[in-house]
Design a protein around this nucleic acid. Structure first.
Lengths: 232, 232
DNA sequence: ATCAAAATTATTCAATTGTATAACAATGAG
DNA sequence: CTCATTGTTATACAATTGAATAATTTTGAT
């Protein structure tokens, strides 16, 4: 019986393929069902490669966690960056993105919770979590400040930070409970719900985030040089 | 070599002792480190009892999850019920209780996240989660409604429910990120932060929840028959 | 075309897992 | 005091686990 034929791939490609297989398996089988054998089978390689590329299974899982957190934050940030228009529109887009596909996904939340459960037991997990959380807070602060300025609200660093902490809590909680979808309400109410809630949290006039057209009118006397581009 | 001496305990006591040992082990060693042997050693019995009382390890863990959720909800509800005074004081007490010890505890959050990670893979876990979530929402609605009425705010069933969903998200998110304590801010800012945030979410006058004395004055013209009892 | 380097496979190993079964002893009824 | 009940211990077992080692094949440099 002949050996399996194989390709030698670059370090980056192999590592990524193993990491993605790890996430796939944990999402599908849970942490306890994601054995080295199943993961490597999913990646189309044999077990030895784990040791070769990561040293140990735990180290591979750590890398998978960091990869997931990075993806989540990057997706959310990108969604805000890609939105043109007023700061209100950017913030609203960011909030809504967190509560719609693909960001709000049961599989992703499940993965995330599984990893969070290890933060306490593994310093590396704790560091990955802290970095991801800090990054998320920073993005939020950056989005919040211009909105506060636009509406003449207080916008000191401390105030922006506290708003970011609260808003992040709101996002996290709704994201998690919404994605797990216990069936107590329809998931699609959440984007509107969070923009409305954010308006009140930041003490913006009603509709500032949830009704962009109205908000645009009321904001026009401040930033009349900007014009909203209609999506095709 | 003689056998281990033992006591025959009642069904309830044994089951609870095994359940608590299960939670202790998962909190200490993580889900993967909580083997039947370690759990039974923690409980001071031998491995055979798991089969005898629960049938399987998975079934024992399911029971441990239900036990944890029940405790969490009961503690939170009790903290609100025990507070005498205005509806505002009750709601504020409930909110603050969720973000202070013993409710906000890294070990508990870690346990909770670990279990949440299994909701997707086990229908029994999903049911336990849904029941706990529904119960929490109901408590919140019950606390929110009289506050809205006191301040002359709209308080339809739908409005109360939406407020409860948002407030629950806020609680969950802050509770989780706060307990994991990434060190980005001091944990003890959270009780004040959430009462302030809740005021704005519910569109109450500033201080209605965060500064009970001032709130009492402003509410006195509505509910002047009530009097606050000073804590000893 | 050759050959050394190293990426990958194949296999082995000890340890641990959850569960099943049999032996035992604590307990309460009579 | 006796004895059956059954809660509990002790042991066995097959399966699976993560990791280590050895064998082999691909690849790129020369």
């Amino acid at each position: 019986m002949s050996r399996k034929t194989f390709q030698r791939l670059s370090l980056d490609v192999r590592r990524r393929s193993l990491i993605e297989a790890t996430l796939t398996c944990i999402a599908r089988d849970g942490l306890h069902g994601a054995s080295v054998r199943r993961i490597t089978e999913e990646a189309g390689v044999t077990v030895g490669l784990v040791r070769h590329y990561f040293g140990s299974k735990d180290d591979m899982i750590r890398n998978a966690y960091a990869y997931l957190v990075g993806q989540l934050t990057a997706q959310a940030s990108e969604s805000a960056r890609a939105t043109e228009g007023t700061p209100e529109a950017k913030l609203a887009s960011f909030l809504r993105a967190n509560l719609t596909k693909p960001n709000m996904d049961e599989q992703t939340v499940s993965l995330w919770a599984t990893f969070i459960g290890r933060v306490r037991h593994d310093p590396d997990f704790a560091e990955i979590h802290r970095d991801g959380y800090r990054e998320f807070l920073n993005v939020l602060e950056t989005l919040i400040e211009p909105v506060l300025i636009d509406h003449g609200c207080p916008h000191s660093v401390a105030i922006c930070r506290n708003h970011a902490i609260a808003l992040n809590g709101l996002i996290d909680g709704l994201w998690m409970e919404g994605a797990l979808n216990s069936g107590l309400y329809a998931q699609d109410i959440l984007p509107d719900l969070i923009t409305g809630a954010a308006e009140r949290l930041l003490e913006l006039p009603a509709g500032a985030l949830s009704a962009p057209d109205i908000a645009l009118q009321s904001a026009r006397h401040q930033t009349h040089s900007e014009q909203q581009s209609k999506p095709s």
